[in-house]
């Protein structure tokens, strides 16, 4: 087993085990904290796929932003002193059947398909940041600007929605 394979299995196991804890844990706080390890494992997988910029972005935005936001959500919507923190599940049996069949089909298709692999045109060890930056300023300029407007509007809207309603005089 080469080092690359060992690192891949290490990160894959971290990702999948902690994602399992996120999904099956009865305690919302446990779920939120194991989501941290899921994001970390996914970051490792990105690094293995030569996506250095995406890996750092993942760490900054998911771990630094979205996870903290979710933790705030957990703490603000649960009575922490109560036993309310535990949450139930519903319709586990039909959901398990459906999800297991979807997972089976996906894995089967991924395994059977003979993927045509194109060898890398550029040096795989080179940083992707410069290439991505150039791409966002040329090919993807319009989607990039639209995404920035979407983000601004979404955050302003979120602040508006979350604020307590004031009575209009």
């Amino acid at each position: 087993m080469t080092l690359y394979e060992a690192i891949f299995y290490f990160f894959a196991i971290i990702t999948l085990v902690s994602a399992g804890i996120v999904v099956f844990s009865k305690n919302v706080i446990h779920s939120a904290f194991s989501l941290l390890f899921t994001f970390f494992g996914v970051t490792g997988i990105y690094v293995l796929l030569n996506a250095d910029f995406i890996a750092v972005t993942q760490l900054l935005i998911y771990v630094g932003g979205i996870l903290v936001l979710l933790l705030f959500g957990v703490m603000l919507t649960n009575k922490v002193i109560d036993v309310e923190l535990k949450t139930g599940t519903l319709q586990t049996v039909p959901a398990s059947i459906i999800v297991a069949s979807i997972a089976g089909v996906l894995c089967g298709v991924f395994y059977i398909t003979d993927w045509k692999i194109i060898p890398a045109s550029m040096d795989a060890t080179k940083s992707t940041t410069a290439g991505l930056g150039e791409m966002f300023m040329t090919t993807y300029l319009l989607p990039f600007e639209v995404a920035s407007v979407v983000l601004l509007v979404a955050l302003v809207g979120a602040a508006m929605i979350a604020r307590k309603e004031r009575t209009v005089e």
Binding site: L16, V42, V99, A103
Partner: peptide, 8 residues
């Protein structure tokens, strides 16, 4: 890996 993550 991504298929299993999606299913979870």
């Amino acid at each position: 890996v991504s298929a299993i993550l999606f299913s979870l």
